[in-house]
Simulated scan of single mutants.
Amino acid sequence: MVFETKDGPFQALAPVNLDVTAGRFISLIGPSGCGKSTIFNIVAGLQPPTTGRVLIDGEDATGQIGRVGYMLQKDLLLPWRTVLDNVALGMEIQGMPIRQARERAHPYLARYGLGGFENQYPNSLSGGMRQRAALLRTLLLDNDVVLLDEPFGALDAQTKRQMQEWLLQIWSDFNKTVIFVTHDIDEAIYLSDEICVMGTRPGRIVKRMETPLERPRKRSIVVEPAFIDLKHHCLDLLDTRPEDSELEAAE
């Protein structure tokens, strides 16, 4: 991916091949500026790639908006709409009548921790509850692929743990393919089937690794040798200099 700047072409991403099996949970970790958000923008159709294609279920989806669900760190709830109407918003934009969208969304609020808050407005919700509403809005778009860009980055530690548990439950229930960006290595290991470690100058995938932990997972796995070994390996990769990444990729 190359951007034109006043100083000439800038290569933000090296060639990236990110093949994700349906139903898997993949995390991208890496330093700021390594291209994680650029990858998301390309997959979501918001940014055309310089070269290459985006394939979803074998079909070319390059530059097509609406083929994936995309949730940013900010919940972007509309303050003048109730929680129910915020959750229903995506379906309404897709053309579903508002009454039908509300009827479809309503049972999910009760099931996933927002029961009783249907008619409240976002400013009366906690950060975790706002993120629940935003994620439900994204999932109810019925896209097979969901991109989550640091959705829990602004939450306190306790709420973040609760939201991680909630996300694993809802991912299991909805059977979506999730690509998750985070700076938290523990979070990536706990949630994911696979982890992609990225490097910079230009952005690239340095290594892709399976998470050798059975599901369902308990919090106690953070002290298991497999968890600790993988965490240390990720940290080592993140500390690798760009020239060392190039050498490893070449090998």
Rank of each mutant, 00 (worst) to 15 (best):
D193R: 12
T211P: 07
R161L: 14
F180A: 10
K160D: 03
C196A: 14
E165H: 14
E187W: 09
I189R: 04
M163V: 06
R204W: 00
F174Q: 15
I205N: 00
I205G: 00
E165N: 13
K207F: 02
W166M: 04
E210K: 13
W166E: 04
T182Q: 12
W171M: 09
L167A: 09
E210L: 11
Q164W: 12
K176L: 14
Q169R: 15
V197D: 00
R161F: 15
R204Y: 00
M198N: 01
T211K: 12
I185V: 15
P202V: 01
G199W: 01
L191N: 07
L167E: 03
M209V: 07
I195V: 15
M209D: 01
T159A: 10
L167N: 06
R204K: 10
A188K: 04
T200E: 08
V197F: 01
T159E: 04
V178L: 10
F180E: 03
I195L: 12
V206W: 02
E165W: 09
F174Y: 13
K160W: 10
Y190M: 08
T200Y: 12
E210D: 14
F174P: 05
H183G: 02
G199C: 02
I179L: 12
T159V: 15
M163S: 08
I170N: 02
V181S: 13
Y190H: 06
I179W: 05
L213H: 03
T211L: 14
R161C: 09
T182K: 14
T211F: 14
W171S: 07
K160R: 15
Q164N: 14
M198K: 02
M198C: 04
D186Q: 12
G199Q: 00
T159K: 04
L167I: 05
R208I: 06
S192N: 03
V197K: 00
K160C: 14
P212V: 07
K176A: 14
I195T: 03
E187C: 07
I170S: 04
S192V: 05
T177M: 08
P212C: 06
D193S: 12
M209E: 03
K160H: 10
I170Q: 02
V181R: 13
F174D: 05
F174M: 15
I179E: 01
V197R: 00
M198V: 03
S192L: 07
C196M: 07
I189Y: 05
K160E: 03
